[in-house]
């Protein structure tokens, strides 16, 4: 019995460790994205080219945060995911409206 828990515990730790490795890779990617974003702005490229890429990079970074750092990819996160997406939808409508419908 005690041995059994031990094996289980070891397996769990190994699994956690592997996941942690993934987290570090995610972190490295996020750093790279940030560097690209700052670099592109410093490089003085065309506005129309840079802004969409900046927004995509930000969205991907946020996805990494949510799915890896905050474990939304794990089981039991269906409801949190639903509510975050619902919130993101309302957020999108709000930002869109306030940025295009205010001045005319």
């Amino acid at each position: 019995m005690a041995e059994n828990t031990n094996i289980h515990e070891n397996y769990k730790r190994k699994k956690n460790k592997e996941e942690m490795k993934q987290q570090v890779i995610t972190f490295a990617l996020m750093i790279v994205f940030t560097l690209i974003a700052f670099g592109m702005v410093k490089a003085d490229l065309s506005k129309l080219f840079v802004i969409p890429i900046l927004l995509v990079l930000a969205a991907v970074q946020v996805g990494f945060q949510l799915y890896y750092f905050m474990h939304m990819s794990h089981k039991g996160h269906e409801m949190p995911a639903l509510m975050i997406y619902a919130g993101a939808f309302v957020a999108f409508m709000t930002v869109l409206t306030l940025s295009v419908l205010i001045w005319w």
């Binding site: 409801m79 509510m83 919130g87």
Partner: peptide
């Protein structure tokens, strides 16, 4: 998590 949805 729901609270964070509202914070969004």
């Amino acid at each position: 998590w729901f609270f964070l949805g509202g914070e969004t």
